[in-house]
Design a protein around this nucleic acid. Structure first.
Lengths: 152, 152
DNA sequence: TTGCGTGCAAAGGTTTTGCATGGCA
DNA sequence: TGCCATGCAAAACCTTTGCACGCAA
């Protein structure tokens, strides 16, 4: 059965994801950055382990604007279950939205359209404030997560 | 300059898209189905022409859950510009949402989060009514577009 | 006739799979 | 010792690019 053995690769991969907070990575990012930290983990192993974590819900998985799979660790399996995400199509960063309004939208779609919205899978796409101001693509730094100051 | 010549491939491709209504296709779907209709069009040409149409706004382009690029023809370039789309993660169908609530959400994200939501790129993911009732994946037929009976 | 459009073939990039080896329990 | 985990190499996919030929204007 899968996930039985406690190996160095699993330990280090999990540590790496935890330390990354809510950052999102491609498989390449993970391989490259872990290598930089002196932890060699095979690309295949990264794919397989992230897939496994995704199935059990402790990482989320989505496609970025370029069609490359991105992964994000959610410490608590429910940490990102209650809110939504916005992705900036310019810089690719993921922002977290925890609005009453999103709940209302969910309720409405369910009640009036019979559609059960999945916050884990849905990503709102647009252009973030910084990119809009800069007028060009920029990297917002390690995370890009921001609290909403106007609704919860 | 691009788009100058009126070729058989362009004509047929456009006809095919128009006849498809709001269906969404992968490049493979287009090549395969057109071939079945007796219209041979090279895969490369399909890629190039769809890309061209996407740039000028008459087809929308997005990644499905498996990371394969999907295209959808929007007869009028603005036909799908003002509203949002929901995709059922079970059957893959795209539904159209034209709610006041989505407008409110846009306004709020803009005003309070500085985020400019793009209706063309954003796809709400969840499970549609039919799949929820069926309890399993089904194909809802050629389109799947539905009007909203409760808000505009 | 000119030069855009087409499509084959090849390259590019990402992800999956086969298989022999390594290492946990 | 038994069996899962790992990682190399190769395959499988999807998409883009190079290039010679075809065809619209």
């Amino acid at each position: 059965m899968r996930g039985e053995y406690n190996t160095r690769q699993k330990r280090e991969l999990l540590r790496f994801l935890k330390e990354g907070g809510l950052r999102h990575f491609s498989v390449d990012d993970v391989v490259f950055e872990m290598d930089r930290q002196g932890e060699k983990v095979g690309r295949t192993t990264v794919y397989r382990y992230l897939e496994q974590l995704a199935e059990q819900g402790s990482v989320r998985k989505y496609q970025n604007a370029q069609g490359v799979t991105q992964y994000q660790h959610v410490a608590d399996a429910d940490a990102c279950g209650g809110h939504f995400h916005m992705m900036c199509s310019r810089c690719g960063n993921l922002l977290h939205v925890d609005c009453r309004l999103m709940g209302e939208l969910s309720d409405h779609l369910m009640r009036d359209h019979g559609f059960v919205l999945d916050p884990r899978e849905t990503i709102l796409v647009g252009v973030c404030e910084k990119c809009r101001n800069d007028g060009e693509a920029v990297d917002h730094g390690p995370d890009g997560a921001e609290g909403c100051h106007h609704c919860l």
